[in-house]
Design a protein around this nucleic acid. Sequence first.
RNA 1: GCUCCCAUCGUCUAGAGGCCUAGGACAACGGAUUCUCAGUCCGUGAACCGGGGUUCGAAUCCCCGUGGGAGUACCA
Length: 487
Amino acid sequence: MSVRVRIAPSPTGDPHVGTAYIGLLNWCFARRHGGRFVLRLEDTDQERCQPKSAQAIIEALRWLGLAYDEGPDIGGPHGPYVQSERHRLGIYRRYAEQLLAQGDAYPCFCSTERLASVRAAQLAARQPVMYDRHCRELAPAEARARIAAGEPHVIRLKVPTSGEFSYRDRLRPKPFTKRWEEIDDQVLLKADGWPTYHLAAVVDDHLMGITHVIRAEEWLNSLPKHLLLNERLGFTPPEYIHVGLLRNADKSKISKRKNPTSLLWYRAQGYLPEALLNFLALLGHSHPEGREQFTIAELAEVFDIERVHVTGPVFDLKKLDHLQGLWFRQLPAERVRAEVHAAIDARFDALYPLLRERMTRGGDFLHWAEPFYSAALTVRREDLVPAGQDASAVRGLLEAMAGTCAALQAEERWTASDIEAAIRSLCEQRAAADPAQAPLCAPKLAFGILRQATLGRPHSPPLFPCLEVLGAVRTRERLAAAIQALR
RNA sequence: GCUCCCAUCGUCUAGAGGCCUAGGACAACGGAUUCUCAGUCCGUGAACCGGGGUUCGAAUCCCCGUGGGAGUACCA
């Protein structure tokens, strides 16, 4: 039987670097074994899924060059490749009903409140936290009556209450074992009739002929449920292989708070797909000949899933930068020019609307744009302190502004209007708190100081849109430098 | 709390009982080249989590600790 693998990202946000990592592994595995690589979108959570995200994932994979053989935008023999569409076809409901009819699943009427209190009690009693199977033994007649009466309910999987589960993951020396009684009666169908990940993924993997599921180890704990589902549904299960999770420097699961996780970010920063992929390939894996630089096509030729590590690698951008340097310097002249143009254009497009009205010659653009292109400014103390004002008071104001900027950045609210609102209210508060500070905190003076500190000039286009374009990182760097200059 | 997974330099890794005085890469540091920077070249420091076994011999196998991580949702 020929190999078929998939990646099944959930379109709930920006395309994730973890998707690229798992995608790369699956892509290589498919290539190596002459199999097919499938993209399936798992959008069964109507609350969290964003339509824009699906498109962004597709574009990110295309940018990386992780081409799939079947997927939402290109179709294939096992479509549709989007779970919400499959749901509307009644696919998941059908299998849930099969399980119900076989007595392998049951309706559950427990309220969210009851579930929460059960959980709280178990935690307090130092018991494992799981569903207490309250509805499992309901008389079928009663269950039918309550469903007929329109009572909200979910469908749960009937998990064995004794015996042991064991599975040999080819990456791990010892079989993964767990007692069935420790495994929850998983919800298969939610109250709104949509399937949960567990049901949908197992059903689709089967229907799509998936032979190997290479996924992150966060799924290891739900493996028993997935295998049980396969068995009860009469499917031949795929082989499940769990690889390590990408980590932050503190070893926790990679997160956007501590690392750039969005593939959009890497593209915007000018990282080359070749470099990013090469970097990802080096995490948790190694080239058999010890090579460090290679394309994914070269990798695929020698790819061996057994060489993949189960230890979660720390994601270290320093190494990426090194690889990026190697790749970039080897780029053909054409592409270097294109990359440079792209970098200039990206900033140009943001700046142009701001500068348009104050230009009388094309070359004026260079004059106004200069602070946005230069990496750092040389700030002079005398430019920062308005006549008649005290340097330490100015410093205090800038420090407060820097704090405001840090908060805005942390909240991901770095937009002109949010910056303006926050800075204005900061100034008003300081003026109100200390009348002696009032003159300095008046917009005319305060904004001028902020302009000098961040743009290094007394004149500029409207300040707050400028700061938005400048970006939180550089704005804060420049504020820090200005504060330093006033010490 | 409960369950499961994992463990070689700061980081990514090589290592599948003797080839290990533990190799490579990034980062760090020092030097060379250079007007500067980048790059390049040369060099330095840096690890088998701890304790017990098994064995003639253990980074490699087993056990126990410790540490880290993940799961524990009508999220994926």
